[in-house]
Write a protein that binds this DNA or RNA. Structure first.
Lengths: 338, 338
DNA sequence: TTGTAGGCGTTATCAC
DNA sequence: GTGATAACGCCTACAA
């Protein structure tokens, strides 16, 4: 914007007052159609755009939504970001990306920052729900929606069916005759981690199978954690015949470790992942996984958020549950009976 | 920020004028150390943060840098975004994410949007350089750095060695005895696409090998494009013994198609990728690739951008060239002589 | 070294 | 329907 043209220039040029111009920009109040046309023409002609700093100084809000994520490098969140940005653009909003690295401190700081810049909304994704975050969000008084939070709270949330993902995948393993099943990946001290572990345990228990803590390797959601888990399992005398992984990235790490150890998947050990990231299709073997549709997350979050922003909905907090489905590929051996 | 505290509140509480407070905030002008301490204490105590809308209304700039990318879903850009955000946070800047989907129209719109919100800087990544973008950037008059642009222009740039990536990988293929080598992926009408193709061609020519257009399948940087390329190559009577892929994602698609067709990599056909995304390690076989260090990109871009923002450097446009290295894994058969 | 006052571009509250 | 005018919170000459 080389020469800044303001609402005043438009008003002068159109021979009206700034008030009137402001009114047609914001579509507020009644305006004669001839006046409106005239003004719109001038706006068009001059390529005028309202200065958003000035706008938000008045309104105390910017057209800017904070997207707070544990790790943008995770394809699930990257896709989410992409869709969110697309949706936001249609409403003339921008997306501010805030990567927390799964740290509570950063999550809190993200909210503070959102306040400082008067963010118009927050889409908050975490692997660990905490009352601290919610309180801070409340205090911030910015419309927000929580992703992957199972906590009952004051905000709209969208999440997968609780515990369902690993339940589905573990159950599939059981159906295929597996009885000694390992669990890899999720950090034990996070909400999402606990939930994933619980799905695994429930499936085992429902089938009357033992839960053996030696068969759980809970470290983190990274490929590195998966790699270590794979190494660990390969040292066991009584190896599992299958491993349920907390997400696909972890599964990839497990795959790499097993490959290095000369263990063949799925012939020796079966693997299931979770999230169905696009790379699960191209792994060898293609990874059986559980869907976690980022676009559904994005759209649900977005529409709820905007109803809050535009005061279209002011009722009780809502909860959208995203269906999960087993995606069967080739990383699980069938009819294993040992 | 429930109750908004302003600079006035701080001034009143500290028993000084707003000017003085403003001065200590912006570290401008001389302030008595006792006064400064007092003010800082009050600021701390009240948890005061300057309203950035008001600030930028004065300065005409926000602490906000636009990160414009073709596709945030590409791990290279996702890592870049992560690092960029980390760096920015230290300077109290935020990252606005703008995904262009490789469309010129969106790229232009991104720049307009950056103007509207008075962005403090732009990091612009494209697979296609165009004078139009550069002119718009110039007109926007916002400090900017270009990623992957080889065009000599008015902005600082950071890019890999021109044509070097595919030159390196193709050459490696040649060294290992391959003579019939395909090229997969890059869209022919983009700068980056052309550059990658050129590296491939140069390597061939240097080795006195024929360039056969039938062995080029130029479609796009997506996995899907790679998949189609793989299918295409598998239908050829005279199949290549190796394929140079324009990036790793394309290579992944090729791998999938070849796998479906029962063609074994690297025994039947060798594959090389490019960018060394983390998933190339976990593909089967692990993919031989060429490094493209996103962290180096991020840090170089960031430091140059901030020197512009802070007027620490005002000289000629600079150009940072990021070294590329061949990463040898297992997707290339050695000693192929046919 | 510190304070006073004006203005940045909008929107909102009045009047007309 | 339309127009003056007062904020919004901050920065910055200019004064003292």
């Amino acid at each position: 914007m080389s020469k800044k043209i303001t609402i005043k220039d438009i008003a002068r040029e159109a021979g009206v007052s700034v008030t009137t111009v402001s009114r047609v920009i914001n579509k507020t109040g009644r305006i004669g159609s001839k006046t409106r046309e005239k003004i719109n023409k001038v706006i068009e002609e001059f390529g005028y755009h309202p200065n958003s700093a000035a706008q938000s100084m008045k309104t105390g809000r910017t057209r800017n939504i904070f997207f707070v994520v544990p790790d943008i490098t995770n394809p699930f969140y990257a896709s989410l970001a992409k869709e969110l940005q697309l949706l936001s653009r249609e409403k003339n909003y921008n997306i501010t990306l805030y990567n927390t690295n799964e740290s509570l401190k950063e999550e809190l700081r993200a909210i503070e920052t959102a306040c400082e810049v008067c963010a118009g909304g927050i889409v908050f994704a975490s692997i660990n729900e905490s009352r601290e975050v919610i309180d801070k969000l409340l205090e911030a008084d910015i419309p927000a929606v929580l992703l992957n939070s199972y906590l009952k709270c004051e905000f709209d949330t969208v999440h997968g069916e609780i515990n369902a993902g690993t339940y589905l995948s573990t159950n599939y393993l059981i159906e295929n005759g597996h009885k000694v099943i390992g669990f890899a990946g999720a950090p034990a001290d996070t909400t999402v981690g606990k939930s994933r572990k619980q799905g695994y345990i429930t499936a085992l228990q429902n089938a009357g199978l033992n839960v053996d803590e030696k068969l759980s390797f809970e470290m983190g959601f990274s490929e590195d954690a998966g790699y270590k888990a794979g190494k660990y399992f390969s040292t066991l005398k009584k190896k599992p015949t299958a491993i349920c992984c907390a997400n696909d990235i972890v599964a990839m790490g497990v795959l790499t470790a097993l490959y290095e150890e000369g263990i063949v998947v799925p012939d020796d050990i079966s693997i299931v992942g979770m999230d169905d990231i696009i790379y699960s299709r191209i792994s060898r073997p293609p990874l059986t996984s559980v869907s976690n549709d980022s676009n559904v997350f994005a759209r649900s979050a977005f529409s709820m958020l905007f109803e809050r922003i535009e005061n279209t909905y002011e009722g009780e907090p809502r909860e959208i549950i995203v269906e999960r489905n087993l995606i069967i590929r080739e990383s699980v051996s069938t009819n294993k009976c040992n």
